[in-house]
Each structure stands twice: as C-alpha cells, then as structure tokens.
Computed example of a mutant assay.
Amino acid sequence: MYALDALQDMKAGQVLQVIADCPQSFRSVPEEAVKHGYELVGEPEKAGQDIYFTIRVVR
C-alpha cells in the first residue's frame, strides 16, 4: 500500500487523502491505517467508483 509509505515520511498532525477505486479498499485501507498507528478521520466517502479516505498521522 503506497499510502503507508507516504505516511511514514509525514509528521504528527499531517493529513493524507487517499483515493481508491477497489471496492475491497473500503475495508482494507482503514484496517491497515489503524493497525499501523494512524487515525482515520471521519468516514470513507464514495463518489462514483472512487472512495476517499482521510488519514492523520498521530505519532
């Protein structure tokens, strides 16, 4: 997951928006983010085929 690589280089408080088009990502992106110590901000939003996630660095 490229988002995890990007999050590693970010500082506490910074936010990353992830856009995915795979239906499985609706579940896997939040699970992986939380598992690695990041915070999912709000609920994923769906627009057409795209799913938008907002993830905050908390460390």
Rank of each mutant, 00 (worst) to 15 (best):
M1C: 07
Y2L: 11
Y2C: 09
L4D: 11
D5H: 10
A6C: 06
A6R: 07
A6I: 09
A6Y: 06
Q8I: 00
Q8Y: 04
D9K: 01
M10D: 08
K11V: 09
A12Y: 02
G13H: 06
Q14A: 12
V15Y: 00
V15I: 14
L16S: 10
V18G: 02
V18I: 15
I19N: 02
I19W: 02
I19Q: 01
I19A: 06
D21E: 10
D21A: 12
C22S: 12
Q24R: 08
F26W: 05
R27M: 12
R27I: 05
V29E: 09
V29T: 11
P30F: 10
E32P: 00
E32L: 13
A33V: 09
A33H: 01
K35L: 15
K35R: 14
K35Y: 14
G37R: 01
G37H: 10
Y38N: 05
E39W: 03
L40S: 03
L40R: 00
E43N: 11
E43A: 12
E43K: 13
K46A: 12
A47D: 14
G48I: 03
G48V: 04
I51Q: 02
Y52D: 01
Y52C: 03
F53I: 12
T54V: 11
T54N: 03
T54L: 07
I55H: 02
R56P: 00
R56I: 08
V57L: 01
V57T: 12
